[in-house]
Design a protein around this nucleic acid. Sequence first.
DNA 1: TGTACATCAGTGAACGCGCGTTCACTGATGTAC
DNA 2: TGTACATCAGTGAACGCGCGTTCACTGATGTAC
Lengths: 216, 216
Amino acid sequence: MARGATSSVRGDDQEVVRRQRSPRGQGSRLRLELIDAATRLLEVSGDARVLTLASVAREVGIATPSIYRHFSDLGSLVEAVVSDSFQRLDDALVAAMELAKGPPGRLRACCTAYCGFALENPGQYHVLFNAYLGLDPDRPGERPGERVFDRLVGAVAACTEAGVGRQEAPHLMAVHVWVALHGIVSLMTSRPNHAWPPLDELIEATLTGQVGLHGR
Amino acid sequence: MARGATSSVRGDDQEVVRRQRSPRGQGSRLRLELIDAATRLLEVSGDARVLTLASVAREVGIATPSIYRHFSDLGSLVEAVVSDSFQRLDDALVAAMELAKGPPGRLRACCTAYCGFALENPGQYHVLFNAYLGLDPDRPGERPGERVFDRLVGAVAACTEAGVGRQEAPHLMAVHVWVALHGIVSLMTSRPNHAWPPLDELIEATLTGQVGLHGR
DNA sequence: TGTACATCAGTGAACGCGCGTTCACTGATGTAC
DNA sequence: TGTACATCAGTGAACGCGCGTTCACTGATGTAC
């Protein structure tokens, strides 16, 4: 029986030592490893409600109770994962926009990066934007992902200010773009067998139809 | 201890007899009750993976093993619920279109009914269209909800044939409309605190931008 | 009309499993003296 | 330089719970004779 042993063997023949203990001052290393492991598991399941402390511990290679040193419960671990994921999504949008030129180019880059993140990390994206995050809907200011939406508003507004595209309320046009992008990535993920047009055509149709952008 | 008793009392003072047994030939009544109960529970959770046989049995008021008389496992119960829900969504679309006049009116009615179903039954809608239905993505022809999409294609095609709206491939325009509608209802459900424009404006913006329909 | 019997719809008890949570603990390592 | 000790990072055992699944069963009711 491998239980209680200090090492185990994985199917791929790689010996996995039961995770080396962090050196003295660096107990918070495990914290980061826990977030990483939970992120990987959520990427597979796409829902925080099926995540268990036991599975996270297994993924990291520690005993389940060790998690309590770093997180008071599963909820706060998930919270950490979610805020981390939102940050990486936002970073991806900012990085993509920095590389692009001109307001329409930056809006296009923003949309492409948004879809890219969602399609490369469908599970994480689903955790971030599905309805069952376990948020308190009554808590005021409880609007996770609002910063991401604001990037979109900013990118649309820059077009409007530059006289490119339709001269309508940027906030409203951004809503139209957001729902379209969300619909694109959600359905492409959940219906992979559907006959989808190429992603950039879907994005372009959205920008044309909702912001009045034309051509690339 | 109430366990094993033949009745229990609900909080609302209503005595609930532990469900009356079906008369002889009508054992399949429980089958329908199970589907109903599972539908209610899925409406709350929005994910088939957190549904349990025990919770369904509790909801109906029977012993858990009784479910096995009607469904071999949780999966086949969920399958029944899903196919039932898809049917009701499709029925809703057809009914709405029958009441409307003219191709653009029928397309609008179809979109409105689609969103109506999703916003009135967000949990069910989420079960139907999220990625984690547990479908085998490799099984050919495994495209649940395709019939619903085809309604949209038909409604768009009718407009095109009548010379209303943009003269482009109906199938492609229907894809654009579908992703937009899905995005609208998914995000409105998951971000109820967001400052959403009225639903019909969102739908109208989609029909204008993607099908070239103007005015109501 | 009466009765034995088959069938039907559903139950109760039991089992093993994975989980969350608690508790006292271990054992390596840095540090004070 | 040596050593006692505190601290830090993480463990193992135990518990109760809800779950899925099995099994032999119960008891009402329709039916054959």
